[in-house]
């Protein structure tokens, strides 16, 4: 009987936590590489993400092949020679908020520090970046940008293209979450 009660309570609370869960499937991640010779931009609109307030957990996942470039050959080289997307098909982030707001309900428009493991090209790096979370009618928006250095993720850039690809690449994230 006691066990049943606990089970019931556990179930109940997990429902409560689920209500604090936010989902996105078509988030945008965009990167920009700028050198005096060439600017390269690519957009990925297939980023999926979950924010679980109850457990204070955040995760992102995006398919590398979903990056669209202006030049088809660049996109091919990005997948084939640099990110090796057949071998490492997706980039992920798993982490948590450093200062946890009480709940999503209390959220209005805040800068929050997100800390966790960013995994690109099969290499895990610990990152800590600030993002802006804004409450919306359906859920919330997450926006922010940070810098990724290809070198940190064992992405080899040969001397012939070194002048065209920046050593620090600006990545911006724009995700609209729906509460579920």
């Amino acid at each position: 009987m006691k066990f049943r009660l606990i089970l019931f309570t556990a179930l109940f609370t997990s429902v409560g936590l689920n209500a604090q869960k936010y989902f996105a499937r078509d988030g945008q991640v965009r990167f920009f590489s700028s050198t005096p010779i060439e600017d390269i931009e690519a957009v990925n609109s297939q980023t999926s993400s979950i924010v679980d307030w109850g457990k204070n957990q955040v995760a992102f996942r995006l398919p590398i092949k979903g990056f669209q470039f202006e030049k088809a050959l660049m996109q091919e080289h990005f997948n084939e020679n640099y990110l090796e997307s057949d071998e490492f098909p997706s980039a992920t982030f798993a982490g948590s908020l450093v200062d946890i707001p009480e709940s999503a309900d209390g959220l209005d428009d805040e800068e929050l520090l997100l800390s966790g493991i960013l995994s690109i090209h099969g290499v895990d790096q610990k990152v800590e970046e600030t993002f802006r979370l804004t409450k919306t009618e359906q859920g919330m928006d997450l926006k922010g940008s940070f810098v990724v250095r290809p070198k940190d993720y064992d992405i080899e850039i040969p001397s012939v293209t070194r002048d065209k690809i920046a050593q620090s690449i600006e990545v911006s994230v724009d995700i609209h979450y729906k509460r579920r």
Binding site: I50, D52, K55, R61
Partner: peptide, 14 residues
């Protein structure tokens, strides 16, 4: 397991 859970959940959503 939690962090893997969310990533696994995302993988399942794909």
């Amino acid at each position: 397991l939690a962090q893997n859970d969310l990533l696994a959940e995302l993988e399942g959503m794909e």
